[in-house]
Amino acid sequence: MFEARLLRSSILKKVLEAIKDLLTQATFDCDDNGIQLQAMDNSHVSLVSLTLRADGFDKYRCDRNISLGMNLSSMSKILKCAGDKDTVTMKAQDNADTVTFVFESPNQEKVSDYEMKLMNLDLEHLGIPETEYSCTIRLSSAEFARICRDLSQFGESIVISCTKEGVRFSASGDIGSANIALAQTASVDKEEEAVVIEMEEPVTLTFACQYLNYFTKATSLSPQVQLSMSADVPLVVEYRIPDIGHIRYYLAPKIDD
């Protein structure tokens, strides 16, 4: 028996928003520690890694390890039926071919259940190597979303360049070019608005705008985002989900032909 209950459905709704444009289907691997999801987009350019820890749920029970293969567009349709303040419970029997979502209104006067067919997904799992990154940049997630959106107007790629002076995002194309430079913040009133850079070595890498924009669908999960870069390896874009886990996106760089 697997059962996981969240007092607020909004976390799960936001998680789905954060992955459903990038992935069509994914396996939720559930064990004692919580729920893990790892999947690549169809083009294998990016990889999503989601962790929801058991202790972040209001109730969590997983008697046997279970993999729930879900069609994310169907799951998203179902989660849209939950009110933000509803409690959500995901349930599946051992060896089940369906998963059930139960939504309860705060006053318990409305209880809905939705059963969804599971899919048998034979998806490739990748080992993500432990990496010491040359640069990590922490900034407001809303600011990062705005930068990606603004620069997307100029070209298909964004160059991210991190030095000890700061981080610079650039794009160029038919209409011209754009550069956004952020300096490390000296002092701020709100911690989540700070720009914090840790740099061992300067790094410049180029990434596809389209994917960065997909990642920013996770903005509402966290006030801050962390970018980790090293030369010639995928960028990591991490959103920490308060009290329960994180979502990490890995994006393969573009290289000179």
């Binding site: 690549m40 083009s43 294998h44 350019v45 990016s46 990889l47 490739e124 799992h125 990748l126 080992g127 993500i128 190597p129 790629s157 180029t206 596809a208 390896v233 995928p234 890995y250 393969a252 760089p253 573009k254 290289i255 000179d256 032909d257």
Partner: peptide, 13 residues
Amino acid sequence: MAQTTITTFFNSR
């Protein structure tokens, strides 16, 4: 520029 893929960097488990 050419787009690389994730599988170039991370191996199958």
